[in-house]
Amino acid sequence: MSVILEARDLQKSFGAVTAAADINVSVESDTVVGLIGSNGAGKTTFLNIVTGYLKPTSGSIYFDGRDITSLGPRQITRLGICRSFQIPQLFDTLSVRDNLLVGVGIVASAGGSWRHAANTDSEPAKAVETMLARFDLQSYRDMSAGTLPEGIRKLLDIAMAMVAQPRILLLDEPTSGVSAEEKFALMDLVMEAVRNQKVTVLFVEHDMEIINRYTHRVLAFSEGRIIADDEPEVALNDPEVRKYIIGETLHVKRRDSHATA
């Protein structure tokens, strides 16, 4: 498998605080990678650096062999790296349909410079319907985004990130704020929609059950460093990871796994 995303010697400090140090990661295409770590460990900082929202103090990021360290979020989105947010970032006064339509419109009007925005549906409205169906949002079509339940807002936020048909999708805590009963249904829906399109996924998550069930590989962050980088079974049983992130008492049971499918 080819390497799609590579971070080399990433370093980021905010004054005296080191948010990222010695980050060396390469992610193969068509895999699902989980990012775990306690609050302030540097997971979101890593996402922010990858998407160009933050510039690293030193080091560089390569996407498909191309150095993207100096690009901003807009250019990086156009190259094919999209993200969702821990707190959904939506157009609150617009309907669900119009939220997606804005996204489809941006893709369609950008024309040829969008290498990966292969909009298979010629008509924008059709493309919106496809997204609504894929994320099971049809019944919310005409509701304004500001009035949606939190789980649906999360889903729409992820659907918005998928509108541009990215090659890499970064999800920042997709199940935070979603009830325990709903989180697996939500992740099943998202993973199915995303994996159908062979998108490489990196997601930040605190829920080890989710990590265990959906990822091929885990990156464990602690104080800006990666302390473990391995398959979920190995990484989640790593003594360092247990000590700093998971705690000793949790026993991860392997449920029917999507990751190996």
């Binding site: 807009r74 989105t77 939506l90 804005v102 893709v107 541009a164």
Partner: peptide, 10 residues
Amino acid sequence: DNELRVEYMG
């Protein structure tokens, strides 16, 4: 409504 999202849509 949301400038951040517009930028992140490209």
